[in-house]
Simulated scan of single mutants.
Amino acid sequence: MIEGGALVKNGHIQQQLNQQVPDASDWLALSLLPRLGAGRLKQWHHERRAWPQQWLEALSVPQRHYFLYLRHPQGHGQVLQPMLDWCTAESSRALLHPDHPAWPALLNELPDPPLVLWAWGNLACLEQPAIAIVGSRHPSSAGRHHAQAFARALAEAGSCIVSGMALGIDAQAHEGALSAEGATIAVVGSGLDHTYPRQHRSLQQRILNAGGLLLSEHPPATEARPAFFPRRNRIITGLSRGVLVVEAALRSGSLISARLALEQNRDVFALPGALEASLSAGCHALIRQGATLVTTPTDIIEELGGPWRASSIQGAENRPACREGGERQRAGHDPQAQRWLVLLRDGAVSLDELVLRSGCSVSDTLNALLALELAGQVVMCGNGWTLSAPSSESGAQTR
């Protein structure tokens, strides 16, 4: 291992470190140092301490020695280069760091931002205003519907949907963004070359193919570990202007995300649910603690304002109903809309029953219900979907 004192003495390393700011290899090496707090490095960076002298002097002796080893040709070749090779293997991969032009500025507001982020996909996603959508890994059918419906509407309004590509609500959030052909970012708790969970390999590929982005603070070849996911949540909320919790039990990772969001001065939104439902207990607790209760995507857009404008989802009130002949038709002008109203005129009907009666796919059924829900014609209840009061009147006239 290369020995080093307060200043870099190895000529080869000194030449590499003569730049005024750390480069990608420097940030990567710093991120691998044990027991080095991101908060300290953030402070040094913003204080514009002289690189490398003042930075290295502030490290402990073991940290300084290991950093110098990593920046020596031997350590660089054995440790750093295999990781960097993963980035250079494809043009869509990158190693982001605080001096990278694509580094998300919002992450600088975190008390403990990641030192680096491994990226795979479309970095332009980081330029869009983002909303995080989180919730249970074992949601109800209503939760799956709402996660996808809200993500779709918010994506169509110009928001990037951020989530963790986990089972349940996370996956539905990404699906909603993809169905709207919108931007989505998946922040994962493993190296980007390890898909977790494995059954989401197809979802991961579709996110990449659709111009989405995968992010991780863990280098390639890192397998998922339970301890990584709570830390991953701070990045999901840190990238976002607001966080929507769809369903969550009283003790869940989603409530950790909500707490992080509040600490990061982000807006927190929560969907209410049935009083007896355990998956609604966490959302109700958040609402009691000051989270904004929302029932439609417009509630979020109006609350945030700025880039999100209610007018940008006016067209979302006419979502596609069941597609026939390969053509999408809008619910407000489509005779298929009346078909759904007829199916619901006798009371609440579950999603499974609607799929069976309509002969449509689950995805198309959800799209149709979303269109009618946003148009104020149907509402969701404990047993499924039913006509809202205005739609009931119109439905009565058609019977």
Rank of each mutant, 00 (worst) to 15 (best):
R330A: 10
A261P: 07
V362Q: 12
I207W: 04
S31V: 03
R231E: 14
I169F: 00
L106I: 07
H174I: 08
T237P: 01
G11A: 14
D112E: 15
N122D: 15
A173L: 04
A89H: 10
L7G: 02
S254R: 06
E393M: 12
L279T: 15
P34I: 07
A149G: 11
E276D: 14
L260H: 11
D352F: 06
A261I: 09
A50F: 11
Q336D: 05
R71A: 01
L293Y: 08
E217Q: 14
Q289H: 11
E127Y: 09
V116E: 06
I131N: 01
D193N: 11
S350L: 09
Y66G: 01
R198I: 10
H218S: 06
S280F: 11
Q338W: 07
S358I: 04
R259Y: 07
L286N: 02
T296R: 13
E127W: 06
I169D: 00
S361Y: 05
L106W: 00
Q43V: 13
R201P: 00
W44Q: 13
N18G: 12
A38V: 05
S388E: 10
F67G: 04
S392H: 10
W44G: 01
E90F: 12
A277Q: 07
T292V: 12
V294H: 04
A153Q: 12
S179Q: 15
H12K: 12
G37N: 09
S392F: 13
Q16I: 07
R259G: 02
P101K: 09
L28V: 01
Q81Y: 06
S25I: 00
A151V: 04
P197T: 11
S363K: 12
L41Q: 07
L366S: 08
T292P: 00
S136D: 02
A227Q: 10
R35C: 06
Y69F: 14
A24M: 08
G164P: 03
R259F: 00
Q15P: 04
L369P: 03
L107A: 10
D26H: 09
S278N: 12
G75C: 06
L123N: 05
S280T: 14
R357F: 01
G347P: 10
S25M: 08
D267Q: 15
L203T: 14
L70K: 08
L255I: 06
S312M: 04
L96P: 04
L32A: 13
E109K: 11
C160S: 13
S391W: 04
E303P: 00
L84I: 07
V8Q: 01
G376S: 09
D364M: 13
M83G: 02
G315C: 03
S163A: 08
G143D: 10
G143W: 05
L106Q: 14
G242Y: 03
A221I: 08
C381E: 15
L304K: 08
P22K: 05
Q289V: 02
R137W: 02
Q15A: 15
L244V: 08
D299K: 09
V79F: 03
G382N: 14
A258H: 03
Q20G: 01
Q314F: 03
C125Q: 11
P113A: 05
E327I: 15
L167I: 15
L107G: 07
S394I: 14
L343M: 15
A153K: 03
R144H: 10
Q172S: 10
C160Y: 02
L7V: 13
P52S: 05
L203Q: 11
P226D: 04
G376A: 06
H146M: 13
A105L: 12
L370I: 01
S92Y: 07
A224C: 04
L192M: 06
E373Q: 14
